[in-house]
Amino acid sequence: MSWDQLTAFAQSSPLLSIAFAGLTLAVIFTEVKHRLSGIAGLSPAQATLLMNREDALVVDVSPAADFAKAHIPGSVSAPLADLDPEKHKQLSKAKERPVIVTCRTGMSAHGAAAKLKKAGFTKVSVLDGGLAGWRQAEMPVGKGR
């Protein structure tokens, strides 16, 4: 596509062009924010290693109904809407343990991980791609509570 074609498209479809530019900026902003947060992103293979070698706690911040449908085996449910590290029994005991935060797609997990870090958790990371990435890597999935 030439520059002239791109310019012609932008002139003929200004709303689409503005929407595209806005979405592009939002994605760039989100990525930069995540990279500067100091919270590592882990692939499913890296998360599995951390779970097996360092007894990492996997915290799923998806709504309880979504958690019941599918989750990483051994993970604990701590819905983002109710996330309070001090009141959650398993979380309150895990401040020194590695914690891997996940959700359906990996988007909500970053906010939850920042909240845990602010609450004094020292080893917090996020599963890249969330449960969708976990499934794509053909890792096992549990159901129920």
Rank of each mutant, 00 (worst) to 15 (best):
F29I: 12
K95W: 02
Q90T: 13
F121L: 07
E86Y: 09
P63G: 09
V59G: 01
K33I: 14
I28M: 12
P85S: 05
L15V: 14
Q46K: 12
G133M: 06
L80R: 14
D84S: 08
T7G: 08
A65D: 15
L42T: 01
L15C: 10
A109C: 00
L50M: 08
A109M: 06
R97V: 09
E86Q: 11
A40Q: 11
L36M: 13
R35L: 10
W134E: 01
K143E: 00
A112L: 05
H71G: 01
L42N: 10
G133N: 07
V126L: 13
E86R: 11
F121V: 08
W3K: 15
K95L: 04
D4S: 11
H71Q: 03
A113I: 12
V101I: 04
L57M: 04
V58L: 01
G106P: 10
S92D: 07
F67K: 04
S43M: 08
A132Q: 14
G22Y: 02
A68K: 06
R104Y: 12
K33R: 14
S37M: 04
G130C: 11
A132L: 11
V99H: 00
S12W: 05
H110P: 05
S43D: 02
D84P: 06
V58A: 07
T30D: 14
P140F: 02
P98N: 10
A109P: 03
F20V: 10
A132P: 06
Q90H: 13
A78L: 05
N52D: 10
S43V: 05
P98E: 02
I39N: 00
A137S: 06
Q136K: 15
D82K: 13
V32E: 09
A40V: 01
K123T: 12
A70N: 10
E96M: 06
S75M: 07
I28H: 01
S92F: 07
P85I: 09
V76E: 03
T24W: 14
